[in-house]
Design a protein around this nucleic acid. Structure first.
Length: 352
DNA sequence: TCTGGGGTCCTAGGACCC
DNA sequence: TCTGGGGTCCTAGGACCC
């Protein structure tokens, strides 16, 4: 089963502010009277009626619904709500895997006798999460992660979707190629050009062509997914691999002082997470997005450390050595990775 | 309409080591 | 004088997901 919260960030806001419920509400960047540069993170179903959806530029949302309630992201708060939800969900199975702040897989194979009890079991999960946290969720049930995920997507909001093994083929042949997990806009377009415009066509595609076009790993995965085959296990939690922060300027800039100032701020912010997770890092990466949306990464391996000074120095040097000074910068990111365990302790496992 | 911020994984070339 | 095969690490780019 995949358990996925409905319009999660806005649902969290609704918990502490009941008036959110009946109003078109959007969590995301500040719209600044239509001049804002960010996007919609999440919106509720009232807002969706006006054509607003997540990922949409906030300026466009503002044009569609200027009198909606616009709220800034409060990630710490959402994380605390998420923690409570995940604790409830994990009690429904031995194997539990959180995949993001608002969704988790549970392997319930040995808690059920066949498929008949699965719908009731999913209803219990929904009821438990709602009664203990006040958050509504949708559940997808399938023979593997891929199908559970897709079934959940089609069941939203507050629904349950179940696809039995014998129903997988029919379920997939009624799906768009882009609905398959892992196929985004670029891959969908390439597949269409190759003559694999539907899931059915992809399921019978030449393995050789796919391997040639997309590489051995992804090529094989594409075909397997199109056939409803997914061997990935529901595993426990994994170690975090990198920690980063990004910032988009209100106006594109070519000021060295501004850039260096942002690098300092991002580094100071990110290092708190590094300390919280009790890791040392050895690689610093600077990300630059220019006015024209071209993006470049520059990274450097340093001696193993947890010092913010090292992050700042490395990032500023990477900027000095690599930045294209003829182009204004839109966004800067700083990220650290290559973690090493701390004082003999195991690396800190991510759980939220 | 004009595009965020947090991440993950894969590929590929070059340096380097044995 | 010209040269193999196995492996790891580093750097950069790209696609994708929520």
């Amino acid at each position: 089963m995949l358990v996925d919260m409905d319009y999660f960030y806005v649902a969290c806001e609704e918990l502490r502010n009941p008036q959110v419920k009946d109003r078109a509400t959007i969590v995301g960047s500040d719209p600044k009277k239509g001049e804002g540069r960010g996007v919609v993170m999440t919106c509720n179903y009232v807002a969706r009626k006006f054509g607003i959806h997540s990922g949409m530029p906030i300026s466009m949302a503002y044009r569609l619904k200027p009198d909606a309630l616009y709220l800034p992201m409060d990630y710490d708060y959402y994380e605390s709500v998420s923690k409570g939800i995940m604790e409830r969900i994990r009690r429904f199975a031995e194997r539990f895997e959180q995949v993001s702040i608002d969704e988790a897989f549970i392997d319930v194979s040995d808690r059920l006798e066949g498929w008949d009890g699965a719908m009731d079991y999913a209803r219990e999960v929904q009821k438990d999460v709602l009664e203990s946290t006040g958050i509504k969720c949708s559940v997808g049930i399938g023979p593997n992660k891929l199908i559970a995920k897709m079934a959940c997507e089609k069941a939203k909001p507050n629904g349950i979707g179940m696809v039995r093994p014998q129903e997988v083929k029919g379920f997939l042949s009624g799906s768009e190629i882009g609905e398959l997990y892992g196929i985004g806009a670029k891959t969908a377009q390439r597949l269409k050009k190759l003559g694999y415009g539907t899931v059915d066509q992809l399921s019978k595609a030449s393995s050789m062509v796919l391997a040639d076009q997309f590489g051995a790993t992804f090529g094989a995965e594409l075909k397997a997914f199109a056939n409803g085959i997914d061997e990935r296990e529901v595993t426990g939690n994994y170690d975090v691999k990198s920690i980063g922060r990004e910032f988009t300027f209100e106006k594109d800039t070519d000021s060295v002082e501004q850039v260096e100032d942002v690098i300092r701020r991002l580094s100071n912010d990110l290092i708190k997470d590094v300390a919280k997770r009790q890791v040392y890092f050895k690689t610093v990466t600077l990300k630059l997005r220019y006015f024209d949306f071209t993006e470049h990464l520059h990274s450097r391996t340093v001696r193993v450390t947890d010092s913010v000074g090292t992050v700042i120095d490395a990032a500023q040097e990477l900027y000095a050595q690599n930045a294209d000074r003829t182009k204004k910068i839109r966004k800067i990111g700083v990220r650290v990775s290559g973690f090493v365990s701390y004082r003999g302790q195991k690396k800190f496992a991510i759980s939220g």
